[in-house]
Design a protein around this nucleic acid. Structure first.
Lengths: 140, 140
DNA sequence: CCGGTCTTTTGAATAACTAAAAAAAACGAT
DNA sequence: ATCGTTTTTTTTAGTTATTCAAAAGACCGG
């Protein structure tokens, strides 16, 4: 049978292997996940896999454009499936929890620096820093 | 003699040691520098130092607020002396060169996500990705 | 000058990732 | 369905940036 994930992989020119499907499924169920957690999830379905394979698969899927890789300062690389929109992220300075932030209001100014020192701007990436709900409660 | 850097350090509650002054001087002369390059620069003045000491000093100066640490995806942590203004950075996707970007026009919208999922926003960090002048030339 | 505190040095460990070669699996054609 | 080629995964090593901890050293108030 040809599942939705299979054809997504093939559409990107990649073979639909068990490992890749398992990684995509893992990322569908958990947002903003690091390689280690993906590995643990995949291991339950595919016990023969290794952390290196997961790194390999994540890199392949990232260059194929099927997943997005983010690297907030202070934590390992995280991967997510939402790639269709250019949304941003907010990171809790206390516990490192990550939230999605839909495109900020007045997004146009954000994408155009007033002066870029001769650089050509392709994309802009915004990371917000703050406190997640539970750390706000813990703080008071 | 009490230099400007000495009093900056003391003002932050830190002792003005040779290592710390040398690190600050190195960062004054080079923008966006990683620990390795700082170490090499400091070594010329202070040959007994070690890369670990430099990491240690950089961490101290960062928490004291005398320098700023940035971690663009794909490169090691970089440090810079410009801390007074909330400027942003542009990274060359080809060679990793970094440029400063003064605060974008219409900065207010950038700092206020339309919805943050219960997070409290403290700061916003913008990273632009593009091509530096010399990689633009190399590309055509 | 002395004792306590702050820094640096030294040595070791860690985490995350990359590289390379061999084994295994997927795909397309027969 | 099966074969052979190509792609992918596994296994094994190795790198790099960084952190941790203990001992040695430097600084400063009294």
């Amino acid at each position: 049978m040809e599942t939705e994930l299979d054809s997504a992989l093939r559409g990107a020119g990649l073979r639909a292997t068990a490992g890749r499907v398992a990684v995509l499924e893992a990322l569908d169920s958990m947002a903003h996940t690091d390689a280690e957690r993906v590995f643990r999830a995949v291991s339950e379905v595919l016990p023969t896999t290794s952390i290196q394979s997961v790194h390999n698969i994540l890199a392949d899927l990232t260059t194929a454009g099927l997943i997005r890789r983010i690297e907030p300062a202070g934590s390992a690389a995280l991967y997510e499936r939402r790639i269709d929109d250019n949304h941003h992220h907010i990171v809790c300075t206390q516990c490192g929890a990550i939230g999605d932030v839909d495109c900020v209001v007045g997004e146009a100014p954000c994408l155009t620096p007033s002066s870029a020192g001769g650089f050509t701007v392709q994309t802009a990436e915004v990371t917000f820093w703050g406190l997640c709900p539970s750390c706000q409660n813990a703080a008071q």
